[in-house]
C-alpha cells in the first residue's frame, strides 16, 4: 500500500496534466479495470474506453479544487469503472451476471452523473464546431483551443493579413455562439 502522500502528489500531478503522474495512475490501475471488464462481458477496447472515462472523471474532479479523496485512487477508479460499465451494459442490453467485486466499492453515483452531463456538453460543443465545416472548425480550434496567435493563424491558413483572418474568425464565432447558446439554453431548460 502506498503512502497517502504519494497519492496526493499523484493527484496534484494529474490536475496539472503532468504526464508522469498520468502514466503512473494509468499503469497502476489499468490491468485491474481490464480484468473487471473482460470478466464481465466486455472486450479490451471496452476496458480502455471505460478506464479513460474514469481517468477523466478523476481529472475533472481534482481540477475542480474541491475534491478530497477519502480512499485510495485504486478504489475510486474501480468504483467509477464499475458504475460506468454497468450503465454501458444496460444501454447495450447486454446480459451480465452480477459483477464479482475485486475491490472495495464506494458510491460514485453523483460523480458519474456529473461526468456524463459534462461529457454530453463537450460532445455537443465538439459536434457544433465540426458542424461549422472548414475553415471555421480549424480556425476556431486553432485560436480558442490551441490558443494560437492570430498572426500565426493567418500565415498558417494563408490569409493575406491578420485582419482578414480575424474577420473570418468572427463570422465563424458568431455561428458557433449561436449554436452554443441555443443549445445551452435548451440544455438548461431541459435540465
Amino acid at each position: 500500500m502506498k503512502p497517502a502522500n504519494d497519492e496526493k502528489a499523484l493527484l496534484q500531478g494529474l490536475a496539472a496534466s503532468d504526464k508522469k503522474s498520468v502514466e503512473t495512475i494509468y499503469r497502476d490501475n489499468y490491468n485491474m479495470v481490464q480484468s473487471l471488464i473482460i470478466n464481465n462481458n466486455g472486450s479490451a477496447d471496452d476496458a480502455r474506453d471505460i478506464f479513460q472515462e474514469a481517468m477523466i472523471v478523476l481529472y475533472e474532479k481534482v481540477r475542480s479544487g474541491t475534491f478530497e479523496l477519502n480512499c485510495q485512487i485504486k478504489t475510486y477508479v474501480y468504483s467509477v469503472c464499475r458504475r460506468l460499465w454497468l450503465k454501458r451494459l444496460q444501454q447495450l442490453n447486454r446480459y451480465s451476471s452480477p459483477i464479482e467485486d475485486l475491490e472495495g466499492v464506494i458510491s460514485v453515483e453523483e460523480e458519474v452523473e456529473e461526468h456524463e452531463r459534462r461529457n454530453a456538453e463537450f460532445e455537443m460543443m465538439d459536434k457544433a464546431i465540426t458542424g461549422l465545416g472548414e475553415p471555421c472548425k480549424s480556425l476556431l480550434e486553432a485560436y480558442y483551443l490551441q490558443k494560437q496567435n492570430m498572426q500565426v493563424i493567418a500565415a498558417n491558413f494563408g490569409y493575406t493579413n491578420a485582419d482578414n483572418a480575424k474577420n473570418q474568425k468572427y463570422k465563424c464565432l458568431m455561428r458557433l455562439k449561436k449554436l452554443f447558446f441555443t443549445h445551452y439554453k435548451n440544455g438548461n431548460s431541459d435540465g
Binding site: 496534466s17 504526464k19 481529472y59 481540477r63 463537450f122 460543443m125 483551443l145
Partner: peptide, 16 residues
C-alpha cells in the same frame, strides 16, 4: 474546458 478535455483525452490515448 473543451480544449482541456480534448487534450487530456488524447494524452490518455497516448499514455495507453
Amino acid at each position: 474546458r473543451l480544449g482541456e478535455w480534448k487534450k487530456f483525452r488524447s494524452a490518455l490515448h497516448d499514455v495507453h
